[in-house]
């Protein structure tokens, strides 16, 4: 995708009640406040099948999630549709939602994953760890620049190169591959 997509959907997901798992919604909240033109912001505990309908109404979608491992402060990469055999409300993966958007609504909108590195997940508390907050700030700054420059694929390729991680490398994507906690 070379030109800036006209309508972009940003979905920040995770459970703010599980510490750093709230990084996705926290990013969504910060970006929403900026009221960026052409950017629709949504947040939820986890992805759901109806997100497919929303994706089909946009030119691109960015999934923002907490990453339990992987590069700091975040990674950004293109993801491809991958149908899932089964859904539950607890675990719909971004690749599966993209596939649903394609199959049910004829969408060809590209998807991107922004995985923000978190560190603390196993307590019931509504706060981000100190290090996660630093990563969040970097991710917000980054995503604003992505929206401004507009060439999502180029940015994703550069970012991947920067982290020297081959696409799809096992363990490279800790976010955007599984529900990272639910309510």
């Amino acid at each position: 995708m070379g030109d800036r997509p006209r309508k972009v959907l940003l979905i920040g997901y995770g459970n703010p009640g599980r510490l750093d798992d709230g990084l996705g919604p926290a990013l969504a909240a910060e970006v929403e406040q900026l009221d960026l033109p052409g950017v629709t912001v949504d947040s939820d505990y986890q992805l759901t099948v109806e997100d497919a309908a929303a994706i089909a109404q946009h030119d691109a979608v960015i999934f923002a999630d907490a990453a339990v491992s992987g590069p700091e402060p975040f990674y950004f990469e293109r993801i491809e549709p991958k149908p899932a055999l089964s859904f539950s409300s607890h675990s719909v993966e971004p690749t599966a939602v993209l596939a649903l958007a394609e199959e049910l609504f004829g969408s060809s909108s590209p998807g991107y994953c922004l995985g923000i590195r978190g560190y603390e997940f196993n307590e019931y508390d509504e706060r981000l760890s100190e290090r996660a907050r630093v990563n969040l700030a970097a991710a917000v700054k980054f995503i604003i620049s992505v929206f401004r420059t507009g060439n999502f694929d180029k940015v994703a390729a550069e970012h991947q190169s920067w982290h020297r991680r081959p696409a799809g490398e096992p363990g490279a994507r800790a976010a955007c591959t599984a529900s990272s906690g639910d309510a």
Partner: peptide, 8 residues
């Protein structure tokens, strides 16, 4: 609502 993302 943190109990469950299905029926919060």
């Amino acid at each position: 609502q943190r109990l469950c993302g299905i029926c919060p």
